[in-house]
Design a protein around this nucleic acid. Structure first.
Lengths: 196, 196
DNA sequence: TTCACTACTGAACATCTTGTTCGATTATAT
DNA sequence: ATATAATCGAACAAGATGTTCAGTAGTGAA
């Protein structure tokens, strides 16, 4: 990729991130972004069709950064009775989220929050679909995509709750909360299977 | 209240609802609303400071209409093992939601969806806090407000999933899905209490 | 009915935002 | 060195927001 493109893109991201920590998303104008990024107006629109697309791109970048390191691992282990704890994938993701607190908190709060959460959910749903063994969703009382949706929504809402608490809890405690409301669901059906 | 005020307010709500079923929230302008409501520009701003406030007021009206009939009942029964089914409060709320499908679906989809869901969650959290016995949240492995948040988020996400499925499932099936992911959580701790 | 309020009207206005266009300029890769 | 691609930035049309204000007309109470 042309260095100029990369530079422009980086400058826009940086400007946007800076602004995002100062004011609410809907208050940020394209004008402010290009002023701070020091790029021409037409250049901005050559890179992003709308401000929402810039937000989406920002989110995807962030998710990739936070999650990608752990994508190689299977996630199924985390949800099993024996899994979880300090070395689990989920805990690592939570640590990453806390490290990126400055960026993420301002995306979650204010009025970009809803969009951010939607993007986060969509991203996580894809991750969980790929990385959770399909047998987890099989033979359930509820439709597979309902359960998948429930798991990713619950994760995002858990993180959201954490951030609203200023991330005072440790990642381990948050994982415990998350698993406390997800595992019983997965196990309750397992029980049924055994009982059948 | 002055009849004129009420008339104006109703006209604005009606116009807004009509527009909401035709186009996305962010595409709707104040100009269109006042044209259709047939009120003066300054009148609109005398009633609502912003378009978002109008949306919020619309949502609250809707929630009250959908939920208020059942606010007198205790909700705790729904979550118990014996509760639920055709005569439960939750099923009734789901029926109401389906009856108001035309209004609600267009609030859920499109770009008002995120805001709508936030308002819905806030509203439901208040309802659940008041109407669920406090003992449900006591002595849990997870903080009470985490659990409360989880329940209301799960309900809203369940409804959201339902609407994305064009409400093809029956309210009873949806209640079953909702309870299938909530009850095991409430019971898993109960088990712990017994084991203690 | 009268009368003091209160709400509505609607045009006009300043201001801001978006997204596009285009000729000139500058950096890049080979 | 040169063709190519990216950027610049001013100018523009279109349209939205929110305010102001003088005039008009319902409303409720006496």
């Amino acid at each position: 990729m042309d260095r100029r493109q990369q530079k422009t893109r980086d400058a826009i991201f940086a400007a946007f991130n800076g602004l995002l920590s100062e004011k609410r998303y809907s208050q940020i104008t394209v004008q402010e972004i290009i002023d701070r990024a020091n790029v021409g107006r037409s250049t901005f629109y050559a890179h992003f069709e709308t401000k929402d697309e810039l937000l989406r791109a920002t989110c995807v970048d962030l998710f990739d950064h936070v999650v990608s390191d752990h994508l190689s691992k299977e996630l199924t282990h985390d949800f099993s009775k024996s899994g979880g704890g300090a070395d689990s994938t989920i805990t690592h993701i939570l640590y990453h989220l806390r490290d990126n607190r400055k960026n993420i908190a301002c995306l979650f709060t204010s009025d970009s929050g809803e969009l951010f959460m939607r993007y986060f959910k969509e991203y996580l749903t894809d991750v969980f679909r790929d990385k959770l063994g399909s047998e987890i969703f099989a033979n359930r009382e509820v439709p597979a995509d309902f359960l998948l949706n429930h798991i990713s929504c619950t994760f995002v809402e858990t993180v959201n709750w954490w951030i609203r608490h200023d991330m005072t809890e440790t990642p381990e405690e948050i994982e415990r909360c998350f698993l406390a409301v997800i595992r019983p669901v997965l196990e309750s059906d397992r029980t049924q299977e055994v009982m059948q």
